[in-house]
Design a protein around this nucleic acid. Structure first.
Lengths: 205, 205, 205, 205
DNA sequence: GATGAATGAGGATTCATTCAT
DNA sequence: CATGAATGAATCCTCATTCAT
């Protein structure tokens, strides 16, 4: 990699990090290109060298999170279904907590603002989550952890809506309670209740 | 009521109805005072005779819904807890469906935009929903339908987060599925699972 | 006077008093017809029964002051010139103090805002003051208190500009010092210095 | 300086000059961003590249005047007190005449509109004038031109109120007389009368 | 790659005044 | 005389985006 390319990458990184900090601190509404570039110490035009639209940088900021969970789950291919779902739940809410309320709000924004909300790859975060969970459940059927006739679509939507409900309510409460506290308290309890009927004999608990 | 007052009320109504239609059709982001008044056939200033701020009319539009559910529930004071919750669920999701996706998005907006989202009374819709449900559960304890040691706060949050999760996902899906369909399919199933442990012997099902 | 006329006068008075209070408290910029009528307990339209323009009521408020000084001076036709000028000065600055800084600001406004500033009769307050003082000096010449060749116009402008300078600076200082304190301290000192050359022998001091 | 910076400066200058002309011609009340930019041949947004608020350009327009007088006076540190005051008076009223009645009105505006009137540095023009004159008199005491016990504050206020009175009356008369004519006719006469008692023997005239 | 000057669409709000009742 | 609903002109400011250098 040439020196020039390296510097370019550094500038790009600086923009993303700066934007992430501003986003965490002040929220999306207060985020503007001027502030990002000023804080990063570059000219306004430089932003558009790396990002076609302002929203793109928000996508970029959130993208790391996906790889994380995706990677973790792909590394535990042989694990138990309930374990996997637990890891998924746990990572999901940890990410929510880690990224903070303002970035969490961005994830929800696509619910109310389909136009301006950033896409996280080429699909919305929600679609992505649906697909990821559907895959997990389908693989569980292949592995005979889940009964063949388990209503995968329904189960997926129940669980995802549970998670998004928690996210939404967390934002509604303005971050008063701890997301991960509640995960344990009620999400997992329901998780078992929801799945129990569809687990194969051997795996029922 | 004098003729003049009647006309004033009619103008006010016209503004609300016009705004509601625009909101349902184009969403909140496209809603502007100019369009509302132009469509209603009045001058721009007339809007400000009836609403101090643009957001106020959105509050007004949604307010009817509250009274509705509140009234219905208060009329069935002696009903069964599960029945009441069913009515609550049903009305909630019916309202979601009736008002349409763009107004539903407004309800979620307060999660991500606490500043600019309109308050629907003096509290947010979410706070209001929490209070209403807490009251229902507390009364069920008084009526001995629910065990004394039922974790009211936790149960309230489980149910509300369920409902808000459904709303959020509905918006995420851009209104693809029917909210009330899903209510039956999964909300009520979980409702029983969630409540069962805390119902008094006589009422357990 | 019929009962109806009496009531009308009462309404008019109520409007003026209310407006005066609002003007003294909040200043001219905050003065609006809505507030005046609301505070007075009448409808907005009523205002326009009595005043063609919003500014007219401000004229009305200030008009009392003129009659006051005018009357006082006309009652002391035979008095000494210096005495008269003293009374004039004194009343002028007392009025300034009495009416308060916000009304004083209105008197100055006509300097910067010839269009919107209220006229106090059909001429501006400043023109009125010039005329009144010119009359005093001319009468003093008739009475031989002042030399025939005294430059009346110049003297008038010197004195008036002195007074208006004090008013302007008082407003500039946001009312920090006491107008009447300063009157004694420097206006009168100058008054004598200015006039001395033109007083007739008999009256020189 | 790069070509780009030069052009930017030119644009800025164009805006200021255009605004100054509009201000001189039509007064402050008629001054709006739309007109300034349209006349200057740039886009509305360009205005806000150079000035954060509309008022800021008025400050800018008047600022030159300050530096001017300040510089002139600081260059004549060893001059006679009366000479200095004469220069001060002269420049003051020349500036009044030069800038024209509408800009003069802006200087007076801060008397009646403390909130919206533009500040000319970080203090009002009046405060600035007070400070400048106080400094001149204090230095005269150091130089023994003025008696040690001269009432500096009082003298400052007398002179400044004289100047502001002239400004105010000039605006009141709608620019009928020539400011500098009057300066000679009465300000200087009074200036000597006011100062004479406090000049040291050697300097008394 | 980097710059930063220039763009211009876009929208809320105020309030004096009128006039039909 | 009193009412108060209706009017609509008038204007500031933001900010994502472009493009010539």
């Amino acid at each position: 990699m040439s020196k020039r390319q390296e510097n370019a990458l550094k500038t790009r990184r600086k923009l993303i990090d700066t934007a992430e900090n501003l986003l965490k601190t002040n929220g999306f509404n207060a985020l503007c290109v001027e502030d990002i570039t000023k804080s990063a110490g570059v000219a306004k035009g430089t932003f558009y060298v790396y990002f076609k639209h302002k929203e793109d940088i928000v996508s970029e900021i959130c993208r790391g999170y996906f790889k994380q969970i995706e990677n973790k789950l792909s590394e535990m291919t042989d694990a138990d279904l309930i374990e996997k779902l637990s890891v998924y739940f746990d990572n999901f809410m940890r990410a929510v907590e880690l990224y903070g309320i303002n970035i969490c709000r961005e994830w929800i924004r696509s619910a109310i603002d389909p136009k301006t909300a950033p896409d996280y790859t080429d699909i919305s975060k929600w679609q992505y989550d649906i697909i990821m969970l559907t895959n997990i459940l389908n693989k569980a059927i292949e592995n005979k952890e889940l009964k063949k006739d388990a209503p995968v679509e329904l189960l997926t939507h129940i669980i995802i809506s549970q998670l998004y409900g928690m996210m939404t309510c967390w934002c509604m409460s303005d971050g008063v309670f701890e997301p991960t506290d509640w995960t344990e308290k009620f999400s997992k309890i329901q998780l078992k209740a929801i799945m129990n009927n569809y687990l194969t004999q051997r795996k029922q608990r």
